[in-house]
Simulated scan of single mutants.
Amino acid sequence: MQRESKTINFQGQNIYTGIDVHLKSWKVTVMIENVIYKTFSQDPDSRILANYLRKNFPGGQYYSAYEAGFCGYSVHRELVKQGIRNIVVNPSDIPTTDKEKKQKDDKRDSLKIAKSLKSGELEGIYVPSKGIEELRGLVRYRKTLVKEISRNKTRIKSFLHCNGIVIPSELNFASRYWSGKFTLWLKTIEMTTPYGDMVLQETLDTTDFLRKKLLKVTRSLRLLNTGNEYSAQLKLLQSIPGVGLIMAVTLLSELEDFRRFRKLDQLCSYVGLVPRTNSSGEKEKTGGITPRSNKPLRSCIVESAWIASRTDPALILCFNQLCQRMKPTEAIIRIAKKLLNRIRYVINNETEYVQAVV
């Protein structure tokens, strides 16, 4: 008598996978509807996970999620390539109990992600295109160079003060902007020992090296203005007072698609220009701006708002009126929101900015 063979088929069923991603291994939890099937460790390779799911749950719809972290979006792209519908989640958006905070381990993390994914509590963050992600890396690298140059300049001035070397009065203004005359004067300084000379000279050489790197990166960003796929948007952005090339490239690389924000409030929330709130019953407290933000973008927006508040007539008027009832540092946040609204309008309507429009 011939035996009847049955083929397992999960067609029409959803398979949920929570992944706790690490450099050398992944902790994976697989759920089938309301059943926790298995938690296991595997090598950090999306193909291994895809083969496991296809072998054990053939014909199913595969869903997965992991926390945004060191691996960026590379894991996401590989999982999608393997046919798994993946999302990348902000770690602070994953529901967590007090017990899970105090007894944290990889197994609990992957299980928590799988359960939240299955219940529909997770919302994936925006995944940029590969080109924009690499442009973002260049812009952030430039910012790192600026910080390192500033630190080295501070080290040199601190070294001078510690050794009792006074900057000539005629170079006080030049030292603030680190002019060529000030650099030449620094190179003429002779310390009492070879050790002091080495410290000063090596720090100067490091600063010069970093400044050359910064110049190279800035020149490559300037090329985006001419005959590039981003040149049209950059031109529109630079028509807004307070928005220069670096600010425009930062906006483009950090946001990419401005239309994904349906309302201005959503964009302000993403940048980090909304206040902290704490309300309970009849009590309602409003604090300063939220610590949750896109830090590179928020700092650039606020910096541009200071410039716009001195160059755009409508924003000058608004800033002066705000300063009558609040501190300038509080007023500039409101100016930053108005500037962000102008940026959103210019890009969404593909039209250059017209001054004196409130």
Results as ranks from 00 to 15, higher is better:
Q82W: 06
D45H: 05
Y195I: 13
P241C: 08
L297A: 02
G227E: 14
M191P: 00
P168N: 05
G18W: 07
F40Y: 12
L204V: 11
N341L: 08
Y270V: 03
T286F: 13
L215V: 09
V302E: 09
L117W: 03
K102V: 08
V274S: 11
K337Y: 09
T17S: 08
K99Y: 15
K147E: 15
E202D: 14
T183M: 10
L234D: 08
G72W: 13
A356G: 10
F10K: 00
L234M: 03
K235G: 05
L160R: 10
A65F: 02
I335P: 02
S269G: 05
G287E: 01
F57N: 09
V30R: 05
A308G: 00
E350W: 00
R325C: 14
V357K: 14
N152C: 13
V89H: 03
I36R: 14
S5C: 10
R276W: 01
N14I: 10
L340E: 00
E282Q: 13
Q11K: 03
L315I: 04
G272L: 05
A65Q: 02
P95M: 03
K118P: 04
L135A: 04
V249H: 00
L215Q: 14
F159E: 09
R54E: 15
L251V: 03
L255T: 11
R85K: 15
V271K: 08
T39S: 10
K99Q: 14
S279G: 08
E330T: 14
E282I: 03
K285D: 11
K157N: 10
L237V: 00
L111W: 09
L214G: 02
T192V: 13
R342E: 01
L186H: 06
A174M: 05
G180F: 10
G131A: 10
G12M: 07
L340H: 07
L117K: 02
D43A: 13
I165H: 01
R54I: 00
L315V: 03
W26H: 08
G287A: 04
I8F: 12
A356Q: 11
Q42R: 09
V217H: 06
T39L: 04
K107P: 08
L111V: 12
V127E: 00
I48D: 10
A356I: 12
S304D: 09
S269F: 03
E352H: 11
E148R: 13
L340C: 02
E303V: 00
C162W: 08
A305G: 01
P128A: 00
L264E: 12
T329L: 12
T311Y: 12
T218F: 00
D205E: 15
F57H: 08
G137H: 08
F209W: 05
P168T: 06
S280E: 11
S309N: 00
I113L: 15
I125P: 11
T290H: 12
I48V: 11
C162R: 13
E229G: 15
G83I: 07
K55M: 13
L339V: 01
